[in-house]
């Protein structure tokens, strides 16, 4: 085990990870509404050692009740429309909706229209759009960092 830990430590030092420029944090709740599993893989990679999203304060939480952002992958199937709305309803405010990947944005091969209720835009107000099939971990990280600003902006206004 110590061999693995030592190598990971080495990797952490050699991989170019820019220092987090922005303070703050975001709790993400991911909901797969009919993806091809590509966005899930890249999202997992973004949390892995080469990108390490958590160093920016961005983490994945288990419950929508603890989440700032609802991160949606896939074109929304008729079967997932209900669970998606329930997850959104359970979130505290202020809340953001992020549509991750081309399917969620309604681009590309989606399927049989009879089986689909989406894109996400038709069901929920979308604040963050990440295009790509699937978006790379770097693109996901960048979009989420921009979302940090979205969350912070209204608070600054409150202070005025």
């Amino acid at each position: 085990m110590f061999v693995l830990l030592k190598r990971l430590q080495h990797l952490r030092r050699t991989v170019a990870l820019p220092a987090p420029a922005r303070p703050g944090s975001l709790a993400l709740r991911h909901v797969d509404c009919g993806s091809c599993n590509g966005c899930e893989h890249e999202l997992t990679n973004a949390a892995g050692p080469h990108y390490d999203l958590e160093r920016f304060g961005i983490s994945v939480v288990a419950s929508p009740r603890h989440a700032d952002v609802l991160l949606i992958t896939g074109t929304v199937t008729t079967r997932m429309a209900g669970p998606l709305r329930a997850a959104y309803a359970a979130m505290p405010e202020p809340r953001l909706v992020a549509a991750l990947g081309d399917c969620a944005l309604g681009i590309g091969v989606l399927g049989d229209p009879d089986q689909l209720a989406g894109p996400v835009e038709d069901l929920l107000p979308v604040d963050v759009r990440v295009a790509g099939c699937p978006p790379t971990p770097a693109a996901i990280a960048e979009a989420l960092l921009d979302a940090l600003d979205l969350v912070r902006t209204p608070r600054r206004e409150d202070r005025r």
């Binding site: 993806s35 074109t75 399927g111 049989d112 009879d114």
Partner: peptide, 11 residues
């Protein structure tokens, strides 16, 4: 399963 059924075969 089949929550993610997108009807790809029919498409």
């Amino acid at each position: 399963l089949f929550y993610k059924h997108r009807g790809l075969e029919r498409a």
